[in-house]
Simulated assay, not measured.
Amino acid sequence: MIEVKNLTKRYGKFVANSDITLTVMPGELTVLLGPNGAGKSTLIKSICGLLRFNGSITISGYDNRSIEAKRILGYVPEMPALYPMLTVREHLEFIARAYELDSWEVLADELLGRFELDDKQNKLGKELSKGMQQKVSICCAALTRPQAVIFDEPLVGLDPHAIRELKKLIAEFKHNGCAMIISTHMIESVEENWDTTCIMTKGKIARSCRRDELGSGDLEDLYFTITEGSGVKEA
């Protein structure tokens, strides 16, 4: 479970996130939507423990900055940050050693095969395209069998096969009780699996909506109503 309570993040006088509260239950997928500059990436980086903030964030009951929380949280950033002189395989081995994983090789081989990286295991990070780097980042996040996962624009740069496999992986995470947050501009890519959407504007959650509350409408209509219309309703 991911719990964010009264999160506020300031950069000097600028308020990037203002008093945000949200909860993602095990097996649920929450989608963060909003225009550029709405505060989505700041919220994600705060949840992942990469920024200082006011308020509280817990992962399965652990403070998000604790070792316990970091062991059960997977993170796929918008811009992959690979080590230029490590191979694809060495990235997975690095994660396995850092997380003290046992018998990780079988899952690593499965993930590399699913994302068509099995024949690129000896390529260095600096030799990979943006899409391939994104695939490696996804494999590293999945290798730890996380209880919670944060995706920041995970589909950008992926080829159709990888997009299909990522969607399957997200469905598997849900089935296994993983709490997930996905920030994306590609609304149609998440319409199959989302449980809750949080639409952000100006650093706040302007509207939080569960799938069963949407009725006959669709997510895209709701998004444009909030961000371009007059339907702003504080969460």
Score class of each variant (00 low, 15 high):
residue 64 N to P: 06
residue 15 V to M: 07
residue 67 I to T: 08
residue 68 E to K: 08
residue 110 E to Y: 07
residue 17 N to G: 01
residue 30 T to H: 03
residue 18 S to K: 15
residue 21 T to E: 03
residue 42 T to G: 01
residue 69 A to M: 09
residue 80 P to I: 03
residue 114 R to K: 15
residue 52 R to T: 13
residue 98 A to S: 15
residue 21 T to P: 04
residue 22 L to N: 05
residue 94 F to M: 13
residue 69 A to C: 12
residue 25 M to A: 14
residue 41 S to C: 04
residue 100 E to A: 11
residue 5 K to A: 14
residue 17 N to P: 02
residue 48 C to N: 13
residue 47 I to H: 08
residue 81 A to L: 02
residue 23 T to D: 14
residue 13 K to D: 15
residue 68 E to V: 02
residue 21 T to D: 14
residue 53 F to C: 12
residue 106 V to C: 02
residue 52 R to E: 15
residue 29 L to H: 03
residue 18 S to D: 15
residue 82 L to M: 10
residue 33 L to V: 01
residue 65 R to P: 00
residue 71 R to I: 01
residue 116 E to A: 14
residue 45 K to Y: 04
residue 29 L to G: 06
residue 31 V to H: 06
residue 47 I to R: 07
residue 49 G to Y: 00
residue 119 D to R: 13
residue 101 L to G: 12
residue 79 M to S: 12
residue 34 G to L: 12
residue 2 I to G: 10
residue 95 I to E: 09
residue 48 C to M: 12
residue 11 Y to N: 11
residue 62 Y to I: 14
residue 18 S to P: 06
residue 108 A to V: 10
residue 92 L to E: 02
residue 58 T to E: 08
residue 118 D to G: 06
residue 38 A to K: 01
residue 98 A to N: 12
residue 68 E to F: 02
residue 96 A to H: 05
residue 27 G to L: 04
residue 65 R to W: 00
residue 45 K to A: 02
residue 109 D to A: 12
residue 19 D to F: 02
residue 30 T to F: 05
residue 66 S to L: 06
residue 6 N to K: 14
residue 39 G to I: 04
residue 22 L to F: 11
residue 5 K to E: 15
residue 8 T to Y: 05
residue 52 R to I: 05
residue 31 V to W: 01
residue 35 P to V: 08
residue 14 F to G: 09
residue 47 I to F: 05
residue 103 S to Y: 09
residue 95 I to W: 02
residue 51 L to A: 08
residue 17 N to F: 04
